[in-house]
């Protein structure tokens, strides 16, 4: 979807929605592409989301290497749901 500069809240939504769309878990690199954010910016947001318990980072063994996987929590899913309602309300009432 094309649009103007995303607000902080929209960025958080886009990150969480990207994780949700991939079945609730995603690799950090994939998340970076899916959410259209730079590595630095994504890390900043992920730190905040970890603090707020909206995502969790799990380490999984893949072949001989350990790789990180980002999981969305119930709190994160709740935020996505609430934001989606807010967006529908905004669209309906022209806000």
């Amino acid at each position: 979807m094309a649009g103007g500069r995303r607000s902080r809240l929209e960025l958080v939504f886009d990150i969480l929605a990207a994780i949700q769309n991939k079945g609730g878990r995603i690799k950090p690199t994939h998340l970076m592409y899916k959410s259209n954010l730079s590595h630095k910016l994504l890390n900043n947001y992920l730190e905040e989301l970890l603090e707020k318990e909206m995502v969790e980072v799990h380490e999984i063994q893949q072949k001989k290497t350990l790789s990180k996987m980002i999981h969305i929590t119930d709190k994160g899913l709740g935020f996505v749901e609430e934001f989606r309602r807010m967006r529908e309300f905004t669209d309906a009432f022209g806000l």
Binding site: A2, D14, Q20, R85, E88, F89
Partner: peptide, 17 residues
């Protein structure tokens, strides 16, 4: 309001670019 605030099933969403 009821349409907007009702509980929705999780679905795929488009991420803004």
């Amino acid at each position: 309001y009821m349409q907007v605030s009702r509980k929705q099933k999780p679905r795929s969403v488009e991420v803004k670019t």
